[in-house]
């Protein structure tokens, strides 16, 4: 793992796996609750894609050919649920353990360093996110909303999107002072969910708003997912991938550093 050379000395013991094991053990008792997370995006898909979509009819897909509203909305929901899950895990859960449960203080008295903690917690969140995304993709396939074998890449893409949001979210969690600050996160998350072309194409916006939307990370996640599930794959999707790679690197670096300063004072 050469990329980890950039982390401060002593902050990584290469034992993030032990942190994942802890999460798995904790969640084993309420696995039903964990699995229930798969349903949230499905409810949206049935209500909006199938229900509401019935009166919308067809839309112009990414490659210019017409697609059903359900097929249009589904990849958007996949990306949005990857974002929601990652942000919830990386902010709420991390803040709770950091401030109240003191789980990390105990971990850092062992060979584990802040980078092990950050990597371990993020990986667990990704494992969960991966299960949800796979479930959602399976339902999409069953409903005939997938029109290309490229859709197989939607699973790793969902993980990348989740990883990006988790890294940035964890960094944000380390800056939070109290529960009130979570309203700020919602203030960013909610409009992003509603307006990042999840439910309607970007062409409805006037130019200045369109540029603003194109800056949102979720917009890039949705466009990436939509290209893969519809098969309209161009070199342009590498730009979306790069956007998330930067989020992972910058957010991860910041989070590990902040965890270090918070816990190792």
């Amino acid at each position: 793992m050469t990329v980890l050379r950039i982390v401060p000395m002593g902050s990584y013991a290469g034992r993030a796996r032990a942190v994942i094991e802890r999460s798995a053990l904790v969640n084993r008792r309420n696995w039903l609750l964990v699995v229930s997370g798969v349903f949230e995006p499905l409810f949206y898909l049935f209500a909006l894609g199938i229900g509401f979509g019935g009166i919308v009819g067809t839309l112009t897909g990414p490659d210019g050919s017409p697609i059903s509203y359900a097929a249009y909305v589904a990849p958007g929901l996949l990306a949005a649920s990857a974002m929601n899950g990652a942000i919830h895990d990386s902010t709420f859960n991390i803040f709770l353990k950091l401030k109240y449960a003191k789980v990390y203080d105990a971990m850092l008295a062992t060979p584990l360093g802040p980078t092990d903690v950050a990597l371990g917690e993020t990986s667990w969140s990704l494992i969960r996110g991966g299960i949800y995304a796979a479930g959602f993709l399976a339902v999409m396939a069953a409903l005939g909303l997938i029109s290309s074998p490229w859709a197989l890449l939607a699973l790793p893409a969902a993980l990348l999107v989740a990883f990006g949001f988790a890294a940035v979210g964890m960094g944000a969690a380390t800056l939070m002072r109290s529960w009130q600050d979570f309203d700020l996160i919602l203030l960013v998350q909610m409009p992003m969910f509603l307006f990042s072309t999840t439910f309607f194409p970007i062409t409805v916006y006037p130019e200045p708003i369109r540029i603003a939307v194109e800056c949102f990370p979720l917009y890039h996640g949705i466009e990436l997912m939509r290209a893969l599930t519809s098969g309209a794959v161009t070199w342009g999707i590498l730009g979306h991938v790069a956007y998330f790679a930067i989020m992972v690197a910058a957010g991860g670096w910041f989070a590990a550093r902040r965890l270090g300063t918070l816990l190792l004072t």
């Binding site: 000395m9 002593g10 013991a13 802890r22 053990l25 904790v26 449960a101 003191k102 789980v103 203080d105 105990a106 008295a109 062992t110 060979p111 584990l112 360093g113």
Partner: peptide, 23 residues
């Protein structure tokens, strides 16, 4: 320079118990 290596050979009992309440 050797934080993780040293910590691997130490036992630490902090002032306030920080047991894992989820386990």
């Amino acid at each position: 320079r050797h934080g993780p290596r040293i910590r691997g050979r130490l036992g630490v009992v902090p002032q306030q118990d920080n047991l894992d309440n989820e386990l």
